[in-house]
Design a protein around this nucleic acid. Structure first.
Length: 464
RNA sequence: GCCAAGGUGGCGGAACGGCUACGCAAUCGCCUGCAGAGCGAUUCCAUUCCGGUUCGAAUCCGGACCUUGGCUCCA
C-alpha cells in the first residue's frame, strides 16, 4: 500500500516519500497570460489538480503554488500592440484563466505568484549564480553557463553536445558564449518594461522565475514539480540547473509531467489553427465536467487525442454516472441490509486506491467504479438492498468524486406547483390507461425542461 | 538526423509472463402501455509484422514497419 509516481528524472516509477512526513510541497508551472488558455493547457492543470486531490485523499497535506507568467516576449508584444500597460493586459487574461479553472473544478492553489511581483528574488538568484561562477555578463545581459553544470540535459535525456548551432537553434538576438547557454537576465531594451535591480537594469529571463519563486516559498527543495511534457526541455531543465547551481541542493524530488493533448492526431498549435478553448466546448453544449472526465479517464502520461466524438462519448458516460449517483441517493427500501453490498463497497474502494497508488492509474480506477455500478444497478432493479446500503454506495461515490471532480448530480429541488400538478395528472391518466393524454403531458413537461422516467418505484423526473 | 513515448476489438483504453479489464457505439432481446433508465446477448482469430526465449507471450529478447512528440522561451 504505497503510492508510486513516475519520475521524469529517473524514468521510473518510484515510491513516493515526501521530505517531511505528511506534508507535500508542490510547484506547478502555470500559464503565460498573453491569450486564452486552450484545452491542451488545461489538461496539464487538471492533472496537477488530480494529483493534489489524490494526495489529500491519501491523507497528505499539500501546499501547491502555481506561478503566473505575466512577463515574457509575448505579453510584452501584445500589450504594446494594444497600447495598454503590461499589468492591465495580463490582468484580463488572468481573470479568464481563473474563470476557466473554476469551471473545470480545478481547486485553487494556495498561491498564484506573478512574475512581475518577484523580480527582486529573481535578481538575487542571478546574483548568486554570478558570484558562484555559473553565470556571466555579456553586453548588459546575463547568461547561465551550461558547461559549468554537470548533468545538464539529463532531465530531457538530451545530449547537448550533438546540437548543431544554426540548424535547429536560431541565432539569438542576444549574444552568448555558447549557443546552449540561456538568458538569466536580459538587458534593458527600448520600448520594453525594465526593472532596476542590483545586477543592472533589465528584465529576467523566462526560466529563472520558477526557480526563484519556488525557492522563496518552499526553500531549496520541493517534493513535486508538475508541468506539461513540453516544459521538460528547455524550461524545467534550465530551472533545475540554475536552482541546483545556486543552492547546491537537490531542487525537485519528483518531476511529474503530463503528456500532450492532440487534436485529430496533431498537437494543438496556432499555425495549424486547431486550437480549442473551453468556451468552444461550452458553446456546443458540453458541460466543463465532460472535458474533465475525458482528461481524468485517460492516463496522464499517455497522449490523448481530442475529437468531437471523444467529447461526446465522455459526456454520455458522465451522464450515466450521474444518473447512477442520483439513483443510489434517492433509493429507499425497507429491505434488510445486504452484506454483499458492504463487501462490494470495500472491494471497490480497495481497487480504486490500488490503481490510483500506481502512478494515478485513473483508467483502472474507473474500471473499479463501473464494476460497482454494474453490480449495484441490478440490485436496485430487484430492490434487494437497504436504504443504508444505497446510502453507503452514494457516499463512496462522493468520496471518489472528491478526487475526480466530475459528478453533477441534480439537486432534489422542489418543483413548482404547476409541474407537480402536471405530473400527478399524468399519473392519473396512466392509471386510467389514457396514454394519449399521458404522453401529451410528458411532451409538455419535456418542453418545460423536465424529463420523466417511469420506474418500478414510481415516476422519476430530472432536468434536461 | 538524434532522442523519447507508443502501436490492443467498430472506437476509446487498462493489464505488462498464465485467469483474455472497463467505457462508448451499433444491433437484438428482457422489462415497459410507449419512451427512458436498467439488465442480458451479439459485433468473424482484439493485442502492427517477422523471428526467438518459455510448458505458456499483448506482456521478455532481436529485427522491420508505422504514428506522435522533443531537439532553446509551446502545457
Amino acid at each position: 500500500m504505497v503510492v508510486k509516481f513516475y519520475n521524469t528524472l529517473s524514468g521510473e516509477k518510484e515510491v513516493f516519500v515526501p521530505l517531511n512526513d505528511k506534508f507535500v510541497g508542490m510547484y506547478s508551472c502555470g500559464p503565460t497570460v498573453y491569450d486564452f488558455a486552450h484545452i491542451g493547457n488545461f489538461r496539464a492543470y487538471v492533472f496537477a489538480d488530480l494529483l493534489r486531490r489524490y494526495l489529500e485523499f491519501r491523507g497528505y497535506r499539500v501546499r501547491q503554488i502555481m506561478n503566473i507568467t505575466d512577463l515574457d516576449d509575448k505579453t510584452i508584444r501584445a500589450s504594446g500592440e494594444q497600447g495598454v500597460s503590461l499589468r492591465e493586459y495580463t490582468d484580463r487574461y488572468i481573470k479568464f484563466f481563473f474563470e476557466d479553472i473554476d469551471l473545470l473544478r480545478i481547486r485553487r492553489a494556495d498561491l498564484y505568484p506573478r512574475v512581475t511581483d518577484h523580480i527582486e528574488e529573481m535578481a538575487d538568484m542571478v546574483r548568486v549564480l554570478l558570484d558562484k561562477g555559473y553565470a556571466y555578463r555579456k553586453n548588459g545581459s546575463i547568461y547561465f553557463k551550461v558547461e559549468q553544470f554537470r548533468d545538464y540535459g539529463r532531465l530531457a535525456r538530451l545530449d547537448l553536445s550533438k546540437i548543431k548551432p544554426g540548424a535547429t537553434v536560431e541565432a539569438d538576438e542576444y549574444e552568448k558564449e555558447d549557443v546552449r547557454d540561456f538568458a538569466l537576465w536580459k538587458e534593458k531594451k527600448e520600448g520594453e518594461p525594465f526593472w532596476v535591480a542590483s545586477i543592472g537594469e533589465g528584465r529576467p529571463g523566462w526560466h529563472i522565475e520558477c526557480s526563484a519563486i519556488s525557492t522563496e516559498y518552499f526553500g531549496p527543495t520541493i517534493d513535486i514539480h508538475t508541468g506539461g511534457v513540453d516544459n521538460i526541455f528547455p524550461h524545467n531543465q534550465n530551472e533545475l540547473a540554475q536552482s541546483e547551481a545556486a543552492t547546491g541542493q537537490k531542487f525537485v524530488k519528483y518531476w511529474m509531467h503530463c503528456e500532450h493533448l492532440l487534436v485529430n492526431g496533431k498537437k494543438m498549435s496556432k499555425s495549424l489553427g486547431n486550437i480549442i478553448a473551453l468556451r468552444d466546448l461550452i458553446n456546443k453544449g458540453y458541460r466543463p465536467e465532460a472535458l474533465r472526465y475525458l482528461f481524468v479517464s485517460s492516463h496522464y502520461r499517455s497522449k490523448l487525442n481530442f475529437t468531437w466524438e471523444s467529447i461526446q462519448h465522455a459526456a454520455n458516460t458522465l451522464d450515466r454516472l450521474n444518473k447512477f449517483v442520483e439513483r443510489v441517493r434517492d433509493y429507499e427500501s425497507n429491505v434488510r441490509k445486504n452484506d454483499e453490498i458492504t463487501m462490494l463497497i470495500s472491494r471497490t474502494e480497495e481497487k480504486f486506491v490500488d490503481e490510483m497508488d500506481n502512478d494515478l492509474n485513473t483508467p483502472g480506477a474507473f474500471a473499479a467504479i463501473f464494476e460497482l455500478v454494474g453490480k449495484v444497478n441490478p440490485a436496485l432493479d430487484e430492490g434487494n438492498l437497504s436504504t443504508e446500503d444505497a446510502k453507503m454506495v452514494y457516499e463512496l461515490m462522493l468520496r471518489f468524486d472528491d478526487v475526480l471532480g466530475i459528478l453533477t448530480p441534480g439537486e432534489r429541488e422542489e418543483l413548482s406547483r404547476e409541474i407537480e400538478a402536471l405530473i400527478e395528472e399524468r399519473e392519473r391518466a396512466r392509471k386510467m390507461k389514457n396514454f394519449a393524454l399521458a404522453d401529451e403531458i410528458r411532451n409538455r413537461l419535456g418542453e418545460m425542461g423536465i424529463i420523466l422516467e417511469d420506474t418500478r418505484e414510481g415516476v422519476r423526473w430530472r432536468r434536461k
